[in-house]
């Protein structure tokens, strides 16, 4: 088994628009070992989210190759990519993406129920307690604050014990204090469970907490640290 959980080679994404073809990503290479933390930064429209979508197998590149947990994504159809996601990947989104009709507990149980785990309820409860929402299990998303919703989303992301967690602007919709607490939680869980973390952000402070950082501008890699 390769020590790298994520490898991207010469990754490009071209979309066609009314004005002609538009290249959003230009030949990008990337390799990430297990348990590493990576921040992708850049201004709005620099191609961060597009890159995240390609790395997580939510979309396919126009050219180039992504290998996620040893699976070459380009050779897989959507359903096989879904299976790879189910086995290896967790997500946290800027807009939380909780299901309105499910309470906090049911939202966290969802990926566990999809796996058919019998301990879904106990495990979801434990995770919600871990993120500090032990008292809010029966609350619906609209009854929770933004920070609380994001904590439910993080509990859900860690529920299925993913190898790699993709976070798209996880603090983007939160005030700085709540954002700080959410990133603390994210990194603490990451350490506890040895999960690889890839986060897209334009919050420099959050980015600096990652071991590695890449910076995009107009779809090109302009800096990689260290």
């Amino acid at each position: 088994m390769s020590s790298s959980i994520l490898v991207a080679q010469n990754l490009s994404k071209v979309v066609s628009s009314a004005e002609g073809e538009l290249t959003i990503l230009h030949g990008l290479d990337l390799e990430l070992p297990r348990s590493a933390t990576l921040a992708i930064v850049g201004s709005s429209g620099s191609g961060k989210s597009t890159l995240l979508g390609l790395l997580a197998g939510l979309d396919l590149p126009s050219s180039g190759e992504v290998a996620l947990a040893g699976h070459s994504l380009a050779s897989l159809d959507e359903d096989r990519r879904a299976r790879v996601r189910a086995e290896h990947v967790g997500f946290v989104f800027q807009s939380f993406q909780l299901l309105d009709t499910l309470d906090a507990l049911a939202n966290v149980m969802l990926p566990l129920e999809l796996e058919g785990r019998t301990d879904a309820r106990a495990r979801a409860r434990e995770l919600l307690e871990r993120v500090g929402l032990g008292q809010r299990l029966a609350h619906y998303p609209k009854q929770l604050s933004g920070g609380e919703q994001q904590r439910v989303a993080i509990a859900r992301a860690f529920a299925a014990e993913p190898d790699i967690l993709f976070a798209d602007e996880p603090t983007g919709n939160l005030d700085s204090q709540t954002g700080e607490r959410i990133s603390d939680l994210l990194f603490a869980l990451n350490r506890e469970r040895g999960t690889t973390l890839v986060l897209v952000t334009h919050d420099e402070r959050l980015a600096r907490r990652c071991e590695r950082l890449i910076r995009l501008e107009a779809g090109r890699l302009v800096a990689s640290e260290p």
Partner: peptide, 14 residues
């Protein structure tokens, strides 16, 4: 939204 999320969580289209 829910079905996009389920697909994201790895549920097949079928």
């Amino acid at each position: 939204d829910a079905s996009a999320l389920l697909r994201c969580l790895g549920l097949s289209r079928r």
